[in-house]
Amino acid sequence: MATTRQIDCTVNGEPVTATVETRLTLADFLRDQLTLTGTHLGCEHGVCGACTVHVDGAAVRGCLMLAVQVDGSAVRTVEGLSDGDALSPLQQAFRENHALQCGFCTPGVLMSMQSFLDEHTNPTANDVTEALSGNLCRCTGYAAVVAATLQTARDGVEHHDQSPTSGGNGS
């Protein structure tokens, strides 16, 4: 029953056409077919947040979507944050605040915090903590991530093509 489909999408702004098995998750598609291995897989049931990516501007679990479901969509991964070798403001703040140690959870944390900053320009530490609750870290801890995120917000949030919308990603 090896059913496959052709999908067309953009990944980090680049058009992608690929043939995927219909049961392939978005995270495995990114990692195994596009070799974008920045997206990590931890629990594969939506709890750890390591696979968090953006689909049409909304942060989602890459392990809880199928690759066929992003046909026609714009996907952004952690590889799409930096401009070449120039770190994004959030990534730079992570570096300055020592917000990562082993780095396993970091891609998902970055994508969650970037999505959060896209929608919140003046967050409190509580807001950040709440937004961070869907990403598990098992070594560094969360305090430095909160500090880095708050610093990025203070320094002026990077603006993206998607303006903060009130309706999530709708249907």
């Binding site: 968090t52 942060a59 869907g134 009130s166 309706g167 990603n169 709708g170």
Partner: peptide, 30 residues
């Protein structure tokens, strides 16, 4: 997430967004 952020529901049926804020995390509510 649409329910959670809907301004009319927040005003006229606030139990719904309040309950939804407890479901998983914003990434799963998306």
């Amino acid at each position: 997430r649409t329910i959670e952020k809907d301004p009319d529901l927040a005003r006229r049926y606030p139990l719904l967004p309040e309950a939804i804020s407890h479901i998983g995390h914003f990434q799963t509510r998306n």
